[in-house]
C-alpha cells in the first residue's frame, strides 16, 4: 500500500532558523494522523509543506507516491481547514462551500447542489444564504470543513482545527471529526499543541520538538512508552526521573518516566519511598499531589473520593514497578 504522505529527510530552513530539520515521516492512507508539539516545533510548517504553501529546502515529499516538489498548492488534491477558517467574507456560506467546484468550472446548478449536501454533512443544512460574519465560531468551523471536503481531497489537513472553540464545543467536535473521518475514509492530518486532543483523536501521532520528530507511534506508545524526556514531559505531564532517582525507585541508573496516576499516596509506615507534600492542585477528577523526596519532586494523582494529604505532611508512595518506563533515547 502506498503511503498517503511521505517525507524523506525533509528540511525547511528560514535563514538560520531550522523550522523543519531532516524529518522522515510516513502517513498511511486512511489514517487519522496528529502532529503534536509546542509552538515553534515545526508541526505547522510540516502541514504547510504538504499543502504546498512552503517549499522544502531539502528532501522529498511524496503524496500517494508522487513527488510534489514542483506541484503548486492549487494542483495538489489536498485541502486544508485553516486555523482562522479563512472563509471568504464577501460570499454566502453556500458560495464559500462551492468555491472549490466553482474554480474547477463545475456547472453552477451541480455545484450548489453539492454545497447543500456538504452543508448537510456538517450539520448546517439551510445555512447556505448566510454570510460567514453571521455565524458562530463553531458554525464557521463546520463551513470551513465543508468547504475543504467539497473537492473530495485525498488528504485533509487541519491546522489547530479546534483551537478557537470553547471546551464543550471542542469535545463535541472531536467526536464528530472522528466519526466523519471514519465515514469518508479520507486521510486526516491535523496539527495541535493539545496532548489530550492528539491522544484522543489520532490513530497515530508524531511528537515534534525543535523541527525534528521526537517520536512517532500510536497514542498508547507515546503515552506509556515515551522514548525521550521531552516526549514524557510534554505528553501528559509525566514525572521524568533522573538516573539517581530512578535507582531510588528501584530501577536501573537511567532516565525514566512514571505517570502520576501510577503513583499511590499511602501511609508512610514500612514503605521504601516517603517524602513531604509540597503542593496540592485540585483537578476535579482528582488531586495532584507533589511530593519532595531525595532531592527530586514527583507528582502523584489522588483520585477524587480518596483522602488527600495536607501540605507539609509526610506521605509514602507506592507504585507498580511495571509502570516505571525506562527511556532508551537520550535528550
Amino acid at each position: 500500500m502506498t503511503a498517503a504522505v511521505e517525507f524523506q529527510s525533509v528540511s525547511r530552513h528560514f535563514g538560520s532558523t531550522r523550522a523543519v530539520d531532516g524529518v522522515d515521516l510516513t502517513i498511511a492512507e486512511g489514517a487519522f494522523f496528529a502532529m503534536l508539539g509546542p509552538s515553534g516545533s515545526g508541526k505547522t510548517t510540516c502541514l504547510r509543506l504538504i499543502s504546498g504553501f512552503e517549499k522544502p529546502t531539502g528532501g522529498v515529499i511524496r503524496i500517494f507516491g508522487q513527488d510534489v516538489s514542483d506541484v503548486p498548492p492549487n494542483r495538489r488534491n489536498v485541502n486544508t481547514v485553516f486555523q482562522d477558517y479563512a472563509l471568504f467574507p464577501h460570499m454566502t456560506v453556500r458560495d464559500n462551500v462551492a468555491y472549490g467546484l466553482m474554480v474547477k468550472g463545475v456547472d453552477r446548478r451541480v455545484r450548489l447542489e453539492r454545497a447543500e449536501e456538504m452543508l448537510a454533512l456538517v450539520k448546517l443544512p439551510g445555512f447556505g444564504d448566510r454570510r460567514p460574519g453571521q455565524l458562530s465560531g463553531g458554525q464557521r468551523q463546520r463551513v470551513a470543513l465543508a468547504r475543504a471536503l467539497v473537492n473530495e481531497p485525498r488528504v485533509l489537513l487541519l491546522d489547530e482545527p479546534l483551537g478557537a472553540l470553547d471546551l464543550k464545543l471542542r469535545e463535541a467536535m472531536q467526536d464528530e471529526l472522528k466519526a466523519l473521518q471514519k465515514r469518508l475514509g479520507i486521510t486526516f492530518v491535523f496539527v495541535t499543541h493539545d496532548q489530550h486532543e492528539a491522544l484522543s483523536m489520532a490513530d497515530s501521532l508524531a511528537v515534534f520538538n525543535e523541527g525534528r520528530i521526537a517520536q512517532i507511534g500510536t497514542p498508547e506508545d507515546i503515552y506509556v512508552r515515551p522514548q525521550t524526556r521531552f516526549v514524557a514531559d510534554f505528553v501528559g505531564s509525566s514525572n521524568v526521573l533522573p538516573p539517581e532517582v530512578t535507582r531510588t525507585f528501584g530501577g536501573p541508573s537511567a532516565w525514566a518516566s512514571l505517570r502520576p496516576e501510577a503513583l499511590r499516596v499511602v501511609v508512610p509506615d514500612g514503605v521504601a519511598l516517603s517524602g513531604t507534600v509540597t503542593a496540592l492542585r485540585y483537578l476535579g477528577a482528582g488531586s495532584r499531589v507533589t511530593v519532595a523526596l531525595g532531592g527530586a519532586e514527583v507528582a502523584a494523582l489522588v483520585p477524587s473520593g480518596q483522602a488527600v494529604p495536607t501540605v507539609g505532611a509526610t506521605v509514602g508512595l507506592a507504585f507498580d514497578p511495571a509502570a516505571l518506563h525506562v527511556m532508551g533515547g537520550e535528550g
Binding site: R75, T80, F82, A86, G100, M102, K104
Partner: peptide, 25 residues
Amino acid sequence: GSMLEASADLGATRAQTFRTVIFPL
C-alpha cells in the same frame, strides 16, 4: 494571507484568486 492560501488550496489559479477573492475584497 490565509484567505489567499485558502483560495489556492481549493484549486484556484492566481488569476481566479485575483478575480474572486483579492479584487472583491
